[in-house]
Amino acid sequence: RNLTILSLPEDVLFHILKWLSVEDILAVRAVHSQLKDLVDNHASVWACASFQE
């Protein structure tokens, strides 16, 4: 069985995303439609995003 980041529970993905910069979140968003939906549909992803580079 192949395990990917998409195999992780949504709460784990949120925990990972909250540590990323805006640039990295946008890069993750571009990788897969499921990740794009996760980022686009949950404001909590952006609430913790680091807007300082």
Rank of each mutant, 00 (worst) to 15 (best):
L20Q: 01
D40C: 00
E23W: 05
A30I: 10
F14W: 15
E53H: 01
L26Y: 08
S7P: 03
H15Q: 08
E23Q: 09
L17A: 02
H32G: 05
L20Y: 03
F14S: 11
A27H: 10
N2C: 08
L13M: 11
H15V: 06
A49K: 15
A30F: 05
L8M: 08
H15A: 09
Q52N: 09
L20N: 03
K36P: 05
H15W: 06
F14I: 14
L26S: 06
A27F: 00
L17C: 10
E53M: 08
L13S: 04
W46L: 12
D24A: 05
C48N: 15
V45A: 15
I16T: 02
P9D: 06
L35A: 02
A30H: 08
V39D: 04
L17W: 03
V12G: 03
I25D: 01
A43V: 05
A30C: 14
D37L: 14
S21M: 02
K18L: 06
V22P: 11
D11P: 12
T4P: 07
A47P: 12
H15M: 12
I25P: 02
H15Y: 08
L13I: 04
V39M: 02
I25F: 03
W19V: 10
R29A: 01
A49E: 12
F51V: 13
E53S: 07
F14N: 11
A30K: 09
L17V: 11
P9H: 00
V22D: 08
F51W: 09
K36S: 02
S44P: 11
E10W: 03
H15N: 15
N41D: 07
A47V: 06
E10N: 05
L17R: 02
R29C: 05
E10D: 10
I16M: 09
A27S: 13
I25H: 02
L3Y: 14
V31T: 15
E23T: 07
C48M: 10
Q34C: 10
H42D: 03
E10Q: 12
K36W: 05
P9Q: 03
L26M: 11
A49V: 05
L38H: 12
V12L: 09
N2A: 06
R29K: 02
L17H: 04
W46M: 10
T4C: 06
L20T: 00
L6P: 04
S7H: 10
H32F: 02
H42L: 06
H15S: 10
V12D: 02
A30N: 08
I25N: 00
A47F: 15
L6Q: 07
L35W: 05
R29I: 02
A47G: 15
H42G: 07
H15R: 15
S21G: 10
V12F: 00
E23A: 13
S44I: 01
A43I: 05
W46I: 09
S21I: 08
V31I: 05
H15T: 07
S7V: 04
R1M: 08
W19I: 11
L17I: 15
L8S: 05
S33H: 07
D11G: 12
I5T: 03
W46F: 08
A49N: 12
L20V: 07
A43T: 07
I16Q: 00
P9Y: 00
S21H: 09
R29M: 06
R29H: 04
L35C: 04
E53F: 05
D11V: 10
N2S: 12
L17T: 05
F51H: 12
C48E: 14
S7T: 08
V12W: 01
S33F: 02
V28L: 15
L35T: 04
H32W: 00
N2Q: 09
R29N: 00
I16F: 00
S7A: 07
W19H: 15
E10C: 05
V28Y: 00
V45W: 14
D40K: 02
W19M: 15
E53W: 06
V28S: 02
I5Q: 00
A47L: 10
K18T: 10
D37Q: 14
A43N: 09
W46A: 09
A47W: 08
D40N: 04
S50R: 13
H15E: 10
F14M: 15
V39F: 02
V31A: 13
D24H: 03
V45I: 13
S33I: 01
R1N: 15
D11M: 06
F51K: 10
W46Y: 07
D40M: 01
L20M: 07
L20K: 01
A43S: 13
L35V: 02
V22F: 11
N2E: 08
E10M: 06
E10T: 08
D11F: 02
V45R: 13
N2H: 13
E10H: 11
A27M: 10
L17E: 00
S33P: 11
I16Y: 05
Q34M: 11
L26K: 13
L8H: 13
L6A: 01
R29V: 06
L35D: 06
A47N: 12
L38Q: 04
A47T: 07
Q34T: 14
F14G: 09
E23F: 03
Q34A: 12
I16A: 01
Q34G: 08
L20H: 02
W46H: 08
Q52K: 14
D11L: 05
C48Q: 10
L6E: 01
S50A: 14
F14D: 03
K36H: 07
L13K: 07
E23D: 14
L26W: 06
N2F: 08
L17G: 06
S44T: 09
H42P: 06
D37Y: 08
P9L: 03
K18E: 11
Q52R: 13
L13Q: 12
Q34P: 02
V31D: 03
L8C: 00
Q34L: 08
I25M: 09
D24G: 05
H15D: 08
D40P: 02
I5Y: 06
L6W: 04
L13T: 14
A30D: 02
S50G: 14
F51C: 07
A27L: 05
H15P: 03
D24K: 01
F14T: 14
W19L: 15
V31N: 05
D24Q: 03
D37C: 14
R29W: 02
N41C: 10
V31W: 02
L38G: 05
H32D: 06
Q34F: 08
E10Y: 06
N2R: 12
D40R: 03
A30Q: 13
F51L: 14
W19N: 15
Q34W: 03
I16N: 00
S44K: 12
L17M: 13
V12E: 00
E53Y: 09
L6K: 02
V28C: 11
Q52E: 08
D11N: 14
V31F: 03
F51G: 11
I5S: 00
H32P: 03
S44H: 15
H32K: 00
L17N: 00
K36I: 00
V39Y: 02
L35P: 01
L26P: 04
F14Q: 12
F51N: 14
L8N: 03
V28F: 08
V39K: 03
K36E: 02
R1K: 14
A27K: 11
L3V: 07
L6V: 04
L35R: 01
S7F: 06
P9F: 05
L17P: 00
D11A: 14
F14A: 15
E53C: 06
I16H: 00
S33A: 04
L17D: 01
R1L: 09
E53R: 13
D24P: 04
L13N: 07
T4S: 14
A49L: 08
D24I: 04
T4K: 05
E10K: 15
H15G: 12
Q34E: 07
S44C: 08
L3R: 11
S50L: 06
F51I: 12
